[in-house]
Amino acid sequence: MREARTAVELDQEATARRELEDYYRNGKPPWDSGVTPPELVALVEGADALTPGHVLELGCGTGTNAVYLARHGWRVTAVDLVDRAVRQAREKANAAGADVTVLCGDATRLDEVGMPGPYDLFFDLSCYCGIPPHRRDSYAAGLTARAAPGARLLMFGYGPEAFDDPISGVTADELRSRFAGWRLVDVTPGTNPVPTFWFTLHRTAAAAA
């Protein structure tokens, strides 16, 4: 049963969605550089590279990283909340000849999007850190239910002090608290002028039935 949401929570969700849509409507979003981050490249191509499997990208934007993953043997599903971003991601994948499934939906309501998993890898480039706090447990539960044994989550996020709003930001302590059955194995500061971090989590318990 879907949880009841307060007027404040509904307003937070609507505001966050409008801001995302405005970024894509007005031009290139600042987080969509068109360049795959070296942290993901290291995971896919580095000395301890993962064996390609099924990957779910949360908040895929225009599909740069989804295409990269598909080109390196991963079976890719990607989701974004913004219609315009999804259309651009599909166009980018088609132009590249990359086999990517791009769906429009809410990363905190994966049951409604139709992506049962299981997934060996989850990739999140600043999606979670912009989700209103009251929806973050649902995000964590959705990933946990779809995680293959030993799955990994690579997440980039801004620190809470990066923006002057009550929603944005993420900390290591929060991830340890919200992601039951996962282990936070690495926190690496980003190189941005504002506080940012790369978080790596491993699924340590069997996925929910």
Rank of each mutant, 00 (worst) to 15 (best):
C104R: 15
G59T: 03
T108S: 14
D80W: 06
T64R: 11
W198R: 13
R90C: 01
P38H: 11
R18F: 05
E39W: 12
C104D: 00
P38S: 13
L175D: 01
L20A: 10
D48H: 14
G150W: 02
T36Q: 09
E19K: 10
L81G: 03
E3Y: 10
L175H: 02
G181S: 08
L153S: 06
S126D: 15
W31I: 09
A16W: 01
D83H: 12
V67N: 01
A207I: 07
K92V: 04
R5S: 13
G114F: 00
M155D: 07
P37M: 09
A98P: 02
A141K: 13
G157E: 07
A16F: 00
V76E: 00
Y24D: 02
Y23G: 03
I167P: 00
T191H: 12
R136L: 04
F197N: 14
A70H: 02
A207H: 11
L184I: 11
A85W: 01
T77N: 07
V187E: 11
D186E: 15
W182Q: 09
A140E: 06
T51R: 12
N94Q: 15
P116G: 02
R183G: 10
T77Y: 02
P193W: 02
L153A: 09
E13D: 14
G157M: 03
L175M: 04
L125R: 14
L43F: 11
A14D: 05
V55T: 03
G117R: 03
P193T: 01
P133K: 04
